[in-house]
């Protein structure tokens, strides 16, 4: 755990619903968020004045090279960590989080993993099994209920992890390079699954990746973060119709443009 900072200013995370008035126009909002780690005096700024907002139902991809603070940013949104300055607001309740490693509990079957998430989300026992099966059906793993995690392939594990994340009943899904460790064929299929689930469930997705094509293939908007400290460097609307394919011309063209900017960001850090 990083030590708490003495200089911490207004560091609050709005948890659950605010008022009964009109629903907020955003599902995630980072308002001048900065995050520094380290002892006072020797602090290292990881995120610098991030201003970012995701509309309800939006698929937003965060792109950046190493050291852009992507994971830190997701931790702040997930409420696992507090910003040094600024506020992170998630008005629709605690977001669900998915990792590069599936992080499924190996002592539980696939179905039980999903049921535990349902249980922690307060779903009554009687409804858990049915809901878990429905969620596994949704990620197209109808036969996986009784399977142990180690009996599933990498792609299947990530789908169970997706089902478990959905079981938390959150409208916001945070994904931390969830497909980075998968092979290209599996990843491509999971892109399709995720797009489908996002649309069916009307989720707000914050998807962190360092794969430009992946970002363009999935997101309605791509935000490029600079590195050390992480700042919002650039952003693109991805005006391409779904369903998209990774080899679409539109995806390729935009990915090339974004890659150019990404390279500039990286080159800034080269030693001369």
């Amino acid at each position: 755990m990083p030590p708490k900072l003495a200089t911490s200013t207004a560091a609050t995370t709005t948890g659950t619903a605010t008022a009964q008035a009109a629903p907020p126009p955003y599902a995630v909002k980072l308002d001048h968020v900065s995050k520094a780690f380290g002892a006072p005096g020797a602090q290292q700024l990881v995120l610098d004045d991030i201003q970012l907002q995701a509309a309800p139902g939006e698929f937003l991809c965060l792109l950046g090279a190493s050291g852009c603070g992507k994971s830190t940013l997701l931790n702040l949104v997930a409420g696992l960590d507090q910003p040094t300055a600024g506020t992170a607001s998630v008005p629709f309740g605690r977001p669900a989080l998915m990792f590069q490693d599936h992080a499924l509990f190996p002592w539980l079957s696939a179905g039980r993993n999903v049921e535990l998430a349902l249980r922690l989300a307060g779903v009554p026992r009687a409804r858990r099994r049915t809901q878990a099966r429905e969620l596994l059906d949704l990620v197209r793993l109808p036969d996986a209920y009784g399977k142990r995690v180690h009996q599933l392939s990498g792609g299947m594990r990530q789908r169970v992890a997706l089902a478990r994340a959905l079981a938390q009943g959150s409208e916001v899904l945070l994904m931390d390079e969830p497909f980075a460790a998968l092979d290209a064929i599996t990843r491509d299929l999971l892109h399709e699954e995720l797009t489908r689930v996002w649309f069916e469930r009307k989720l707000t997705v914050l998807f962190v990746t360092h794969n430009v094509r992946e970002a363009v293939r999935l997101g309605q908007r791509v935000v490029l973060l600079s590195s050390r400290p992480g700042r919002v460097a650039h952003e693109w609307e991805v005006d391409l119709p779904y369903p998209r394919r990774i080899e679409d011309n539109g995806v390729t063209t935009l990915a090339r443009e974004i890659t150019g900017h990404l390279h500039q960001e990286i080159v800034r850090h080269a030693r001369h």
Partner: peptide, 15 residues
């Protein structure tokens, strides 16, 4: 480049 806090419209049709 600006850090926008505008909410973009739908970035494409439904899948």
């Amino acid at each position: 480049m600006p850090a926008t806090d505008t909410v973009p419209a739908d970035g494409g049709g439904p899948p």
